[in-house]
């Protein structure tokens, strides 16, 4: 039986594959940036509520039997306390004007930003990375 093994040394195709993935990721980031984040929508098992990002507040939310504390401060929304088993929502990047989302799978909690894509549709970018 023929034994198929990869090349022992890095090849040109390795670098081409890496370059394609990197280019894809950077283009996706570049084109998804833009617009202003005005509010966040919190979806829990009791329903959906929208909160403005420019007003500081602390929310206490229960979803799927778990309790969460969501803090909106300085235009950023983050889960500061949660009693869910994995706690991944607490370490997720806060939602800010660039968008983002915080998902807690065990409790079925979803916090997402509502970005107006006006700027992006007009073909203007916030920043251009040379």
């Amino acid at each position: 039986m023929e034994k198929i093994l990869p090349n022992k040394k890095p090849t040109a195709l390795d670098f081409i594959i890496i370059a394609i993935f990197l280019a894809f990721a950077l283009l996706f980031i570049f084109f998804s940036v833009g617009g202003e984040s005005l509010s966040v929508t919190v979806t829990s098992d009791v329903g959906e509520t929208t909160y403005p990002l420019d007003r500081d507040m602390t929310l206490h939310i229960s979803s799927g039997g778990y309790n969460y504390t969501v803090e909106i401060k300085d235009g950023k929304a983050a889960v500061t306390e949660a009693d869910c088993p994995d706690g991944i929502c607490k370490s997720t990047r806060p939602i800010d004007r660039d968008g983002g989302s915080i998902i807690c799978v065990p409790g079925g909690l979803l916090i997402k930003s509502n970005i107006s894509h006006g700027e992006a549709e007009n073909g203007k970018a916030d920043i251009i990375i040379p």
Binding site: I4, L5, P6, N7, T11, L13, D14, I17, F21, V105
Partner: peptide
């Protein structure tokens, strides 16, 4: 293993596999 064969090294194998892994997790999410 069967299409790219020895045209890539373990670096390419591992990068492709990691990208597929993360895309699978994203699809699950």
């Amino acid at each position: 293993k069967y299409i790219l064969r020895s045209r890539i090294s373990f670096i390419g194998v591992s990068v492709i596999s990691a990208v597929f892994h993360n895309m699978g997790q994203l699809a699950a999410a």
